[in-house]
Design a protein around this nucleic acid. Structure first.
Lengths: 133, 133
DNA sequence: CTGGGTGCAAAGTATTTGCATGAAC
DNA sequence: GTTCATGCAAATACTTTGCACCCAG
């Protein structure tokens, strides 16, 4: 049985073909906007509704199965939840890429400066990727 | 003459009372959503239009007079442009605060790992602020 | 005075909701 | 069989646009 079938059911979400295709598309593409996801989904389900996409994205967000990524000057994209990581975004080709960076020093410093108790840290590096330089 | 009068004119924007009040409100409040800004502006201009807010926010963004800040689980807020800095957001009181952190080590590391040429870095720390702990 | 800005109304875009039908389990 | 998801249409929310009038410079 598909991995995401199990995960969906663990969150009391039925494993419909539409939902499995959302997880599949995110797995293959990494980061997708609602708009892009809709285009992809249309290829498999020619009468899928945007409402279905929105409803499922919201349910999956609540279940922490996926996460929203907010990038400057861009619509939000969504990704499957994985270990904490940062993102790069290329201003040329617009590609969004995961990058693993150790932020613990920064977080320690921030806590010392401000007595703020950090739950999670979002870091986005904007610039030009290797290919576009 | 008001500082922002000068800056607006330098960008070929007339220094109208509405625009000066936007800069003033941002100066006093730090970070504001469109909605909150509209509420504040209504106190001074009882017939101001949301369209005026949107038009001016967009013009000021183009002029780099202000910047959009994207925070997880929240509508975008805007702030007056200043030196690069990070933000904390409290999940309890929702307050957004500036914090100065030296990100150069992280940026150097990121460049080494990925050959990505960084133009700017956005860092948001989510958690609980001192007051709410 | 003149060009650009404002407020209003309408249009456009994005997202959510209600409901009848259909599919998952 | 029962519950919940889907797709459609309508409703709501958010943002932009067009235009007549007005004000900053």
């Amino acid at each position: 049985m598909n991995h995401y079938t199990t995960i969906l059911r663990e969150h009391n979400l039925k494993a419909t073909p539409q939902r499995l295709e959302i997880t599949n598309a995110l797995h293959l593409n990494g980061h997708m906007s609602i708009e892009r996801l809709y285009e992809i989904m249309l290829k498999k389900f020619n009468s899928i509704s945007l409402a279905t996409i929105y409803k499922n994205i919201n349910l999956m967000l609540e279940a922490s199965l996926i996460q929203e990524v907010k990038i400057p000057n861009t619509k939000s994209v969504y990704e499957l939840t994985k270990e904490s990581h940062s993102h790069t975004v290329c201003s040329e080709c617009r590609e969004i890429t995961d990058i693993d960076l150790d932020l613990s020093k920064i977080e320690t410093l921030a806590t010392e400066i401000s007595a703020f108790k950090i739950d999670y840290t979002d870091l986005v590096l904007s610039g030009i990727c290797k290919k576009c330089q």
